[in-house]
Amino acid sequence: MMSDLIKSIEPAVNPNIPDLHPGDTVSVHVKIREGNRERIQEFKGIVLYMHGNGANSTFTVRRMASNGIGVERTFLLRSPRIDKVVVERHNVVRRAKLYYLRSRTGKAARLKQKFN
């Protein structure tokens, strides 16, 4: 059970992050600080899974870097460091945790697009 007092001090939901689902192809725009300058880095991939709840919730995005090396990055869902998240397409998946994608490469790692 979570106390209302705890909920009241938790950070607000980041308004620039839409509803995400496992399997979505997303592009995450992260604010990066270099000295005094701030720039935005894009991280584009497939949402592998959502985790946690409330202020502790995270989502993990997997993308293929060069040489076919998979890179996974976990973001805090309420982090103010996320500038925005763009959902590029929804895909058909049948589970909540897409761990099976890790062992697949190339054509086998494709997901079917979901239209609604």
Binding site: S3, I6, I9, E10, K31, A55, S79
Partner: peptide
């Protein structure tokens, strides 16, 4: 109980209330 909040740099810090 515990939760986490963000400081002005956007770093998550663990907090006990």
């Amino acid at each position: 109980g515990m939760t986490q909040i963000f400081d002005e740099d956007g770093v998550a810090i663990p907090v006990t209330l």
